[in-house]
Design a protein around this nucleic acid. Sequence first.
DNA 1: TAATCTGTTGCAAACGTTTGCCGAATGGAG
DNA 2: CTCCATTCGGCAAACGTTTGCAACAGATTA
Lengths: 341, 341
Amino acid sequence: MAVTIRDVAKASGVHISTVSRTFSAPHLVNPETRTRVLATAEELGYRPNRAARALITGRTHNIGLIVADIANPFFPPMIKAAETHARRRDYHVFVADTDEDPVVETDLVRALAKQVDGILLCSPRMSDDQIEQLRREVPLVVVNRLIDGLPAVVMDVGTGARSAVRHLVDLGHRHLVYLSGPRGSWTNREIRKAAGAAARAGGAEFTVLGPHVPVSSTGADATEAVLATGATAVLAYNDLMAIGLLQALQDRGIAVPEQISVIGFDDIAAGALVRPTLTTVANPTAAAGRAAVDMLLQQGDDGATGQVTLRTDLVIRNSTGPGPYAPAGATTKQVAAYAKE
Amino acid sequence: MAVTIRDVAKASGVHISTVSRTFSAPHLVNPETRTRVLATAEELGYRPNRAARALITGRTHNIGLIVADIANPFFPPMIKAAETHARRRDYHVFVADTDEDPVVETDLVRALAKQVDGILLCSPRMSDDQIEQLRREVPLVVVNRLIDGLPAVVMDVGTGARSAVRHLVDLGHRHLVYLSGPRGSWTNREIRKAAGAAARAGGAEFTVLGPHVPVSSTGADATEAVLATGATAVLAYNDLMAIGLLQALQDRGIAVPEQISVIGFDDIAAGALVRPTLTTVANPTAAAGRAAVDMLLQQGDDGATGQVTLRTDLVIRNSTGPGPYAPAGATTKQVAAYAKE
DNA sequence: TAATCTGTTGCAAACGTTTGCCGAATGGAG
DNA sequence: CTCCATTCGGCAAACGTTTGCAACAGATTA
């Protein structure tokens, strides 16, 4: 049915090895022969069978991309960037969703292992040990998690958290709440640590609530608890939670940012669509996707295992405003957003 | 390096064919032998090489999923559902993004063809002819497009549009605007036709604006034009545009739904997060993803090429309210939302 | 002129499976 | 005790490529 290398060989009167070389090592074949082969291949509609090629070369030219939840708006831009970037390098991408389940995560890596040259593990939920274990079975690059000796791409959320806290302190807030994210999250831990330190440094009280499943409903559900603390500013693990909180506050007649300021993380598209628009720490997810792909493909070459840290940027919008200790004339100011490719 | 069928055979003292059968035709091997083989396989960490298997069986157990834009919030729930559903049937999914480019679309199908058992083409931008052509090279299921003789899954947006218009007419609106979507879209055409007919049937004026790129900014940009028509209700091609319009209206002090009612399409998550919450026509994207996968996998078996139409449902929230011709006491009423799996 | 090199091609083994065919062993029926 | 059916497992070919090796021709060098 399908046209193979053999058909092309027969049709152009050469041996199959010549056809093979025409595609995989063109410099080894006479230019004249080459064009002839190429012509008949084109004519017959020949396309190399990657599975067969993979079988003998050991390289599939596929990569796996595993995320916790495709529908979480944090991931699609990353998936998109990674896929496009990979394809430009002639790699195809398997995308899989673990539904936040560490067990599925492990199984998935193993199931994909034989079919890919490497796997991108985005925001993994499993333990460091498990990841180290899997690493011995298939090349891995981890996104949003730092493990010694493992190639990784992380967002510098610590710096982002510090900027966010400083912004709030500058606005005159002296009591901050952090709405914590999921328990296993490296990002969550980093934010909490950095924000807490920055708050103390700024002479502000710092209260942590959580952990929470990182969706908008948990943000809304936390409203009571937030109000009970008496804090005037809230930092949320992600935009989804921040938006949930934002709307819940409004629904009970509490003005944002007049009475409470809110900051999220990620800068998902919806943040600019809600009112007030959401101040947030932008994560370069697309850049992370590209960097991770590059890292994975290089890994094959030299085995170098770098760790890349990507810059995050505070994007000031309208959900943050002067607090009770505001210096005279303090006001939110627009800040140039982060760069895109 | 990797452990193969041969290693397992040697370790358990049987021929490789027995090992093979243990996995692909268990009933042909003695239960005793089987457990022994299974045990050593487990011990050695053996995983069948799918590429090799594909080479001989001709079935890769992979499928391709091609969408116009992964980052468009309409798609991720569909991708997620399709992937999960496929995996449950032991299929892995290549996801690719065409960036709305019909040429990329064609190339992608061809590039993936040899590596998959079939391809899901979601909201394709290429011509019917091109699709028919590709169909001869690889099994295809098209989502959101109806082509004679081609297996397809479509959302019944026509009925959704009619419900939406009827809802508006019942509320006392007599002049409706439709914010048109992208030119090549089958869905857009269906909505326009059905909404127009329903409006006429209800004795309402119907104005079409567009086409538009289906993103929030074009919705906002259309504000002037919408106001100029004097209409009191707007139907938008999708939620993104509806939300953009919603916010632009609010920004210029026009109350929604008091002065203008707005309805979107898709029911993306953000619709419930904006204020007022968005009345919209919910598309069962997840169900569509699952149905498309089922269809593709069945296609292999019997070659039947059905066309499935999925129900859409009007979800009434707070962006629609009584119009100038409202009967006394008319008010929006909550409606039970659509079913999920 | 002989020896060596270079460029081009063919040959055949290999990659890790599946599967049709055949033979061996077992057990029941006659 | 023979025959036949059934169950099980081995053998080897096949899937579509890549690639080391060898062969050959023509060109270059000594």
